[in-house]
C-alpha cells in the first residue's frame, strides 16, 4: 500500500494540473493520460497489450457479468472514495452469485477542470482496491465533458467473474426455514457520505463500510456450503435488499430488528436526522440465505474474515405466501418493512 501511495504522480499532472478537453480528444494529451496514468497504475499483461479490446482466455465455467456506474459526491469520504467504491461495488455484485471476480473494465467520464491530482488519487485507490479484490482492470475508456456538464468524475466499471461451483445462488433457491445472516453492521456508508456531503459534524467521523466481500463469500463456496442466495446491501439498505429477495422468491422473511447490528454513532446520527437505519446504504455488507443446518458453519466462516467479522443471524424465511418482510420490533411487536419509497429526506424536528 505504501509503495502505491508513494507512486509519483506521472507526467500529465506536472504538465497539466487540470483535466482539459484535449485529454479526451484522442490526441497526444489523451495518449499521455492513458499511457502514463491509467496504463501505469493498472498495468497487467492483458491491459499492456493495448488492444482495442481485451482478449481473455475462455473457460468452461459459467460466467458472472455485471456493470455499475458510480457518481458519489463527495469523491472522498471517510473510509473510501469514488475509486475504491467503483471496484468494490462491481466486485461485490459478481461475488453475490458466488463468482470469483477476475476482470474489470473502467470507463471514466472526466469533467473539464478536474484537478489531475484528484484523478490520480482516485486511480491509485482503484489500483489498490483491485489488487486487494484479486481483479485485473483489462480495458477502459476516457471521455471529457465540458466544465459544468459533469460532477467532477464519473466512473463505470463492468466485471466478469468465474462461477466455479454448481450451486444456483439466486432468490429462487430461497427455501422456507432458511436462516438469514448479515455480514456486519449496517448504515455506515450512507451516513459517512451524508455527513461529509452536508457538512454534518458528529463527535467522531463515521467511516464508510466500503469493502470487497469476495474473501468470505468464496471461503463459503470453497467450504462446500449450500448457499441459497446472497445479496449485497446498497441503496435502500437492508430493507430494499430483503424486499427484493422476498418478491423474487415469493417468500416471507422475518427478522428481529434488535439483531441487526448498528453502531452507536450511526444509530444516533439516524435518530437525529429521522432516518431509518435499515434503509441507509451500505457498500461492504451482504445478506446470506443458507439452510438452517448450515447457519452456524456459515457464521463461523464469515466471522473468520475481518470484513465480515461482525456477522450475525438476523432472521428466518417463513412462509410461501405474502412475500413480505416483517420485523419484530424491540417491544416484540411485528411490523411490515415495505420497499423504501425513494431517497430518505432528513426531517424537520
Amino acid at each position: 500500500m505504501n509503495e502505491v501511495l508513494e507512486m509519483q504522480c506521472p507526467v500529465p499532472i506536472r504538465e497539466y494540473p487540470q483535466v482539459l478537453m484535449a485529454h479526451g480528444g484522442g490526441g497526444r494529451l489523451m495518449h499521455a493520460l492513458v499511457e502514463r496514468m491509467f496504463g501505469v497504475a493498472f498495468a497487467n499483461p492483458i491491459l499492456d497489450r493495448r488492444h482495442d479490446a481485451a482478449v481473455l482466455p475462455a473457460s468452461s465455467h459459467r460466467l458472472a457479468f455485471t456493470t455499475d456506474s458510480y457518481v458519489v459526491r463527495p469523491l472522498f469520504f471517510p473510509g473510501g472514495d469514488l475509486g475504491s467504491l467503483a471496484i468494490h461495488g462491481t466486485v461485490n455484485d459478481l461475488v453475490m452469485s458466488g463468482a470469483r471476480p477476475q476482470y474489470l473494465s473502467a470507463g471514466f467520464i472526466l469533467e473539464e477542470g478536474l484537478p489531475m491530482e484528484v484523478l490520480w488519487r482516485v486511480v491509485l485507490s482503484m489500483r489498490h482496491a483491485a489488487a486487494q479484490s484479486g481483479v485485473m482492470i483489462v480495458t477502459g475508456d476516457t471521455k471529457v465533458v465540458d466544465a459544468g456538464a459533469g460532477d467532477g468524475l464519473f466512473i463505470n466499471t463492468t466485471g466478469l467473474g468465474l462461477i466455479e461451483h454448481s450451486l444456483t445462488i439466486d432468490p429462487r433457491s430461497v427455501a422456507v426455514g432458511d436462516a438469514v445472516l448479515i455480514s456486519g453492521d449496517v448504515g455506515r456508508h450512507g451516513m459517512a457520505v451524508m455527513a461529509m456531503r452536508e457538512g454534518l459534524e458528529f463527535e467522531s467521523a463515521i467511516e464508510s463500510d466500503s469493502a470487497s466481500v469476495a474473501e468470505p463469500v468464496l471461503a463459503m463456496v470453497r467450504a462446500g456450503m449450500e448457499l441459497h442466495c446472497l445479496r449485497d446491501l446498497t441503496r435502500g439498505g437492508l430493507t430494499a435488499s430483503l424486499n427484493e429477495i422476498a418478491e423474487a422468491s415469493s417468500m416471507s422473511i422475518r427478522i428481529t430488528e434488535e439483531a441487526v447490528p448498528v453502531r452507536g454513532d450511526v444509530s444516533a446520527a439516524c435518530e437525529i436526522l429521522g432516518l431509518d437505519v435499515l434503509q441507509v446504504a451500505c457498500e461492504g455488507r451482504f445478506v446470506a440465505f443458507v439452510p438452517e443446518a448450515e447457519a452456524e458453519r456459515a457464521l463461523a466462516i464469515l466471522k473468520a474474515h475481518p470484513v465480515s467479522a461482525g456477522a450475525v443471524r438476523i432472521g428466518t424465511v417463513e412462509s410461501k405466501d405474502g412475500a413480505e418482510v416483517v420485523a419484530q420490533g424491540v417491544l416484540g411487536r411485528d411490523r411490515v418493512l415495505p420497499m423504501p419509497s425513494g431517497e430518505q429526506l432528513p426531517r424537520i424536528c
Binding site: R335, P338, I348
Partner: peptide, 27 residues
Amino acid sequence: TPEHPLGATMVSSEGACAAYHRYRRPK
C-alpha cells in the same frame, strides 16, 4: 402512496398516513 402522495400527511416523516403506510401497510 409515498411515491404519489395526495397530501402532506403521506409525505412527512411525522405524517400519520406515512406512519401507517410505513409500518402497517395492509397486505
